[in-house]
């Protein structure tokens, strides 16, 4: 499943980032690498979401959220 399919209030683990190389690097620099925990804080109907990554909140647009593969749900 991808980040966009995640549910609000749950923590997931990053499996892979399937985005353009430069975008992928931007995410990695922010600490989004394989096996990092991501908490979904908010989701909007248009698909943009707010996540918490290593203690920092980020707003991510729909297309990006579709490109991050996640797994391993835990609340």
């Amino acid at each position: 499943m991808n980040l966009i399919d995640g549910e609000k209030g749950f923590i997931y683990k990053v499996k892979s980032i399937n985005l353009d190389e430069r975008v992928k690097r931007r995410f990695e620099i922010l600490g989004m690498i394989k096996d990092t925990d991501i908490l979904i804080l908010n989701k909007k109907r248009n698909g943009s979401i707010i996540i918490k990554l290593r203690g920092t909140r980020f707003a991510i647009g729909k297309k990006f959220a579709e490109g991050v593969e996640i797994g391993g749900v835990s609340d």
Binding site: F27, S48, I50, R57, F58, A59, I60, F64
Partner: peptide, 8 residues
């Protein structure tokens, strides 16, 4: 391009 922004 899509949104990516820190919410401090």
């Amino acid at each position: 391009s899509d949104l990516l922004i820190e919410l401090p």
